[in-house]
Amino acid sequence: MSLPSATIGQASSVDFDRLVFDDVSRYFGRRRALAHVSFESCAGEVVGLVGPNGAGKSTVLALAATTLQASSGQVCYGDRSAAELGPALRGRVGLLAHELQLYPELTARENLEFFAALFGLDRVAERSVEALERAGLGSRADDPVSGFSRGMRQRVALERALLHDPTLLLLDEPFTGLDEASAEVLIERLRTLKAAGRIVLLTTHDFENAEAVVDRVMLLKAGRVAAIDSSTGSLRDRYRHAMRGEAVPGGAV
């Protein structure tokens, strides 16, 4: 089947250099998931979202990914909202969710080829092979994903999220299931993306690995921003300070 040349062609008109949350709240029925969240993340920056379970981290990612809409406030990509940018915006966003969003019955290659074709990319087969080589799974390309370990699936899912070279990369618990070597490869990959001017938002409970790559940390508690922190030092200590309601050294808000 012939495939059209990449969506990246239409992407240039929707490219952006910062992500802005302006007083964003989100309710699910009567339950408040996020309240008045404001922050800005620029190209070449990795922002870590940390907080206890249910703090609203995944909701922030879903809002940034446009799969959720804000109940109030606005999410902007550069100077424009998702509504202004239209569906083409989705071609500039990559999402690695906590659920890995892969079809277990399909092989790793088929999964990547399906999503590459869905995103309208060119060189679908070559891109998929290259991505699997990067994930260290070239020899398992034709094995069904159902036979993969969590870590291997995580690596395939990361490649799926990066296939279309997104401007904004959203990673929900990217270190889950990765062994030490794979985590180091991911950190190196994130540094490369940062150097290439991508905007990266990641949620994590893996403070040690996150410390190696994040520029700023947004601490969330019960749907509110407890602190935005760009200081160095132990992320775990800063997290504990914030969760106890104490001032975070170097933290704003």
């Binding site: 969506t7 239409q10 879903a62 990914a65 446009t66 799969t67 569906p87 083409a88 915006l89 989705r90 071609g91 966003v93 999402l95 969710a97 906590h98 659920e99 890995l100 969003q101 892969l102 079809y103 277990p104 019955e105 999503f115 869905l118 995103f119 309208g120 799926r160």
Partner: peptide, 19 residues
């Protein structure tokens, strides 16, 4: 169900296509 089980639905909806 196949889309729901592994949340693939969100990956589909995130594609820049006419839904």
């Amino acid at each position: 169900e196949r889309e729901r089980y592994h949340d693939v639905l969100h990956a589909l909806l995130l594609a820049p296509v006419d839904r």
